[in-house]
């Protein structure tokens, strides 16, 4: 997994609540049995003029010149709600998004971000609005900086916000660790747990 330590990038405000994973990537864009090739389908329903074309919709924020090379999204409550499709996160990552700042996230989406090197930052609605108001003045210049180690978000004009993140996910992101590899270090504990419960709740273990 790609590590996340610090990042300074162009941010785009998508200030709506409840942006669901169908909106982030419609099911029709998930064409192959693969985690790759999904960037083009990102926000397809709003990014293109027609659902079956690739003609860019000039009104969609990420298509505007001032938001070219966006790497951070500023958005509303419950971002990534809905379908569990990890394709939403793979599409965001392939497009180049490194962090998303929102008051809250869909639970499965949040976890999927953590497993794919995208940092979901929870800040208050007010903080998201303040950051948006600032960067909108000149998006290409007024970049946002995120420091995961310090758990801080800063703007060029001096806004500073601290955010919370669970220690485990933070370590994994900072070091780009593979969660399966980490868990397999506890093999002895898992085995001991299985032996214990096989005695107590034997029916839980099916036989082939």
């Amino acid at each position: 997994m790609k590590a996340f330590t610090t990042h300074c990038g162009i941010a785009a405000p998508l200030l709506r609540i409840n942006i669901d994973t169908d909106a982030i990537i419609p099911s029709r864009e998930m064409r192959r049995v693969s985690k790759k090739g999904l960037g083009e389908g990102l926000f397809a329903s709003s990014r293109y003029v027609m659902s079956d074309s690739r003609e860019l919709n000039p009104d969609f924020i990420l298509n505007k010149a001032e938001y070219a090379n966006t790497t951070i999204l500023l958005t509303g409550n419950n971002f990534g709600c809905g379908s569990s499709r990890e394709h939403a996160v793979w599409a965001l990552a392939e497009y180049g998004i490194r962090a998303i700042i929102a008051p809250s996230f869909g639970a499965i989406f949040y976890q999927n971000c953590m497993r794919n090197g995208i940092l979901p930052v929870v800040l208050s609605n007010e903080a998201v609005m303040q950051l948006s108001d600032e960067i909108m003045q000149d998006p290409q210049k007024l970049k946002i900086e995120i420091d995961l180690q310090e758990q801080k978000v800063s703007s060029k004009k001096g806004l500073h916000f601290e955010f919370d993140i669970e220690t485990g996910s933070k370590e994994m992101l900072l070091n780009g660790l593979d969660s399966i590899g980490l868990t397999l270090q506890y093999e002895a504990d898992i085995k001991a747990f299985e032996q214990q419960t096989q005695k107590q709740h034997s029916w839980l273990y099916l036989q082939n």
Binding site: K35, S84, I108, Q111, N112, S179, L184, I190, E194
Partner: peptide, 15 residues
């Protein structure tokens, strides 16, 4: 519900 990466984790480690 979980994502695909978590499904891999669950299948590989049963946790």
């Amino acid at each position: 519900g979980i994502g695909s990466s978590e499904a891999e984790h669950a299948m590989a480690t049963q946790t």
